[in-house]
Structures are given as C-alpha cells and as structure tokens.
Design a binder for these strands. Structure first.
Length: 411
RNA sequence: GCGGGUGUCGCCAAGUGGUUAAGGCCCCGGAUUGUGGUUCCGGUAUUCAUGGGUUCGAUCCCCAUUACCCGCCCCA
C-alpha cells in the first residue's frame, strides 16, 4: 500500500471544520487590520532561501527540500520547497516594485511549508503557517500593529491567554558591538562549550545564548558573562524604539515578558523579536515567532525598506484550539423517487441550503434514520406529496411533522 | 543526526507458544414492504505493521526494516 510520506498527513473531514474556522478567523482579523492576502509560489529559487533565511541556519543547512530540475546548469535550475514564507513575500515585494506604492504594504498569508526534520509532536515535514508581513514603516507602531494582530487573532480562536516574549536585538551597529563583547567574554570558556556553540561562536554568536546544553547554560550563569548578556547594549535609538513599543503594548493591555535570551534562529532579524508560547504543547512550545527584519529587502536586492512580520504554526494552533463539529444539513430529502429528490435538492441548494438525499433508493426507514443523524429537517417526498404537490417536513430534533404547501415556505 | 517507547478490524481495545483471534463504538442488513434517534437479532480481521529466523507449531520469543509517538537538536 502506498502511504503518505513521513511527516505529512491527510486532513480529513473530521478536522476540516476546525481548519476552516481557524482560517476564517485569520481572514477576519487580518483583513480588519488592513492586511491583504498574498499567495506566493510553494517553490522558489534555492538561492532566495540561502540568502534570505541565512546560510548559517539549520533550516538552510540541513532541512531544505531542494531539487535540481531541468538542464545541466545545476545552479540556475536549483529550486527549493519553501521552508518559510518571509523570503518569498519579500521577493514578491521587490519583484512587483511595491516600494513605489505608499507605505505601509501589509500582507497576510496561509499555506504549506516544508522542512526535512524528524517528525515529532507539533513538528511535521509539511506543515502550515499563517503569517503577516508589513513593509515600509520604521516607527514602533508597526511592531505594535503586528504584535497586536497576532494577539487579536489568537484571541479570536480562544487562545487569548498565551505568553508573549519579547526582546530587542538592536540595529546592525549595536548588534555587532554586542556580538563582539559576547565573543570577548566567552572566549576563555570556549573549550568547555558544546560543538554547536563553537560553530556559532564563529558564525552567529548571538545564537549561542539559546543553547540548551547544560554546560553552556552554566557558563552563561557566570557573573561576568551574565553582566555582558544582560547589559543594555543597544544604542539609544534602538532603546527608544523598543521602549516606545513596550509602552504601546502596555496601553493595549498586552501582557509580555522581556526575555534577553530570545534570539531566534533566522538570520534576518534585527531590533524587535518576539515569540508566543504555550506550555500545553510539550517541547515544541512556540506557536508564533516573528520580529523586525529591516535589512532583508535590501539584502535580496530591493531598495532599503524596513519590515516586520510573524508566522504561526497552524498544526500547533490546531492542537490547542477547541474542535469544531461538522455542521448538520438543513434538509435531508427522504424519497424513493430519485428524480424528484434530485430536483428538490437542486432547488433548495440554489437557495443556499445544505441538502442531501439518498442516492441508492433505500427503503424509507433507512433514509429517515440517515436523516436523523445528519440533518435538522427531513423533507418527505412520497407518492402522495408528489401527486398532490406538497411537502411533509419533519423536525428531526422534536419529531414534529408539518404539511407545507409552497416551496417558499420551506425556506 | 542521536536516544527511548509503541504497532491486534475505520476507531477504542482484550488476548495467549498450540485445532474457531474477546468485547465496545461506527458501519451494513433484518425485525418494521411510508416515519428515525430506544430496543432486539444478524453481518463485517483466513489475520495480529512488513520481511526473515527459532520451533513440530507463533499474533504472542529473536533479528532486521518501516511507521507513529516521546525526548535531544531546531523551529512555527
């Protein structure tokens, strides 16, 4: 038997109502905040992710679905199934010269992403993200706007009480100063740290800070190291940006926690980074992750444009959310006259009613039994009804049956 | 990539080295040839993830593979 590939799954009718409900809420909340939906391709040039997501990230290094397609020139024909969607949206922003429109440009998206990882609770190889990207605004109001819509969306699906964690990485300049002082203070301990951290020390020292290795954690606990980590290294401008954002969040009554160790694994972030977590999820606790990426548009060849965004894992949301039931039919047509049943179904459906009937011409009691399981009302269309031109409508919740003369009274 | 656990019908789930693999739900049919959701009766796994091995004999023991789950890592 051919089975679904490892880390992928079929979403069947019992889960569909909940998925649709999550999506409806996303659409409502984000559209009300002025975000318009954007649909970008599922695969892109491999180079887009190498440059956009970052060569030093795990995502690019070991988790991408990359294919060589077409001709002999391998490089020009290397494509990758998107592991995330920020790079793709940025690419579209640049390609369509959206910087020529008046800012802000605000987008939300939903779609499958692909990462070649070991499947686990809350982690699949094909998974879905809902996300938001906003371009063109430097002011902290943009950060607030983005975090607000994330929180409002979560609230709309009943997850209003999740923890928001925040940090500021600073701008490229202060980020760089910070990076250097971290390297300096950690240099004497480098030999005692894990192999990953030794790598990160060279490529992306900030990522060392969220290392889970016990030894490394101990080193971060040392007084002189702590002093550097918790030192407010960011420049005045970045500080003002961050503090203004915090004051906005206070006004909005959005609860947050400052987490100085929050760094995030994608290279493009600067200034604000945030995560929203749920302790109910096990080790894959992040529901939402995002931040500011002011340098990415330029890095991918566009004119310098500030930007903020986030992405959420829909499967993780799904597991937290209250499940929705499949909605009942308005009518189930009970009739052994298939032709009449078909015609009535057509008429009712054209009036936007949810209607089904028995296509096998089964016996009356079977049809009614079926109706009682899946519909609110049964329309009985027997010989009498057809001959004399009326409908017998039975309320399947209370058992009451009425005679209805005109089609319009059915509705 | 590393470590641990699990794998019996669509779903839950008992079971044992030995001629027929419990039960419940769902589903299908009948009692009831135009009135359901209750009740009663009946049906549905030549087969216990797959491939080998041990054995006179294996769903139950061993090995491998695979899938899923959990943890590490990473992230949404």
């Amino acid at each position: 038997m051919i089975k679904a590939q490892r880390g992928t799954k079929d979403i069947l009718n019992d889960e569909i109502p909940t998925w649709q409900w999550i999506l409806e809420n996303a659409k409502n909340v984000f559209q009300n905040a002025g975000f318009s939906e954007i649909k970008t391709p599922i695969f892109e040039a491999t180079e887009l992710f190498q440059r956009g997501v970052g060569d030093s990230t795990d995502i690019v290094n070991k988790e991408m679905y990359t294919f060589s397609v077409g001709g002999a020139d391998k490089n020009s024909s290397s494509i990758t199934l998107r592991p995330e969607n920020t790079a793709g949206v940025v690419r579209a922003y640049i390609e369509h010269n959206l910087n020529r429109q008046s800012p802000p440009q605000k987008f939300w998206y939903f779609g499958p992403m692909f990462r070649y990882e070991r499947p686990q609770a809350g982690r699949q190889r094909q998974f879905h993200q809902i996300g938001v990207e906003m371009f063109g605004i430097n002011e902290p109001a943009a950060d607030a706007e983005v975090i607000l819509s994330a929180v409002e969306f979560l609230k709309s699906i009943g997850l209003g009480n999740l923890e928001v964690e925040l940090n500021s990485l600073g701008c490229p300049k202060c980020k760089n100063d910070y990076r250097n002082s971290i390297k300096e203070v950690l240099a004497p301990y480098l030999d005692d740290m894990c192999d990953d951290c030794k790598m990160r020390y060279e490529k992306n020292p900030l990522r060392m800070l969220d290392c889970k290795n016990e030894n490394c954690q101990k080193i971060f606990e040392k007084e002189e190291v702590k002093k550097v980590i918790f030192n407010d290294y960011i420049c005045d401008e970045c500080k003002t940006h961050f503090n203004t954002l915090l004051s906005y969040l206070d006004e909005l009554n959005i609860k947050y926690q400052r987490n100085k160790l929050l760094v995030r694994g994608l290279d493009y972030y600067n200034r604000t980074v945030f995560e929203i977590k749920s302790s109910a999820l096990g080790s894959q606790s992040a529901v939402c992750g995002g931040g500011r990426y002011d340098g990415l548009v330029e890095m991918l060849g566009g004119v310098p444009t500030p930007a903020v965004g986030f992405a959420m894992g829909v499967e993780r949301l799904f597991s937290l959310v209250e499940k929705k039931e499949v909605s009942k039919l308005d009518y189930y047509i009970v009739s052994t006259n298939t032709k009449e049943a078909l015609k009535l179904a057509q008429k009712l459906r054209s009036q936007n009613k949810k209607v089904e009937f028995d296509m096998q011409g089964r016996k009356f009691s079977k049809q009614l039994e079926k109706a009682s399981k899946c519909a609110n009302y049964a329309v009985i269309l027997g010989e009498d009804e057809i001959e004399k031109g009326f409908y017998s409508v039975k309320d399947l919740n209370c058992g009451e049956q009425r005679k209805i003369e005109n089609f319009s009274d059915l509705l």
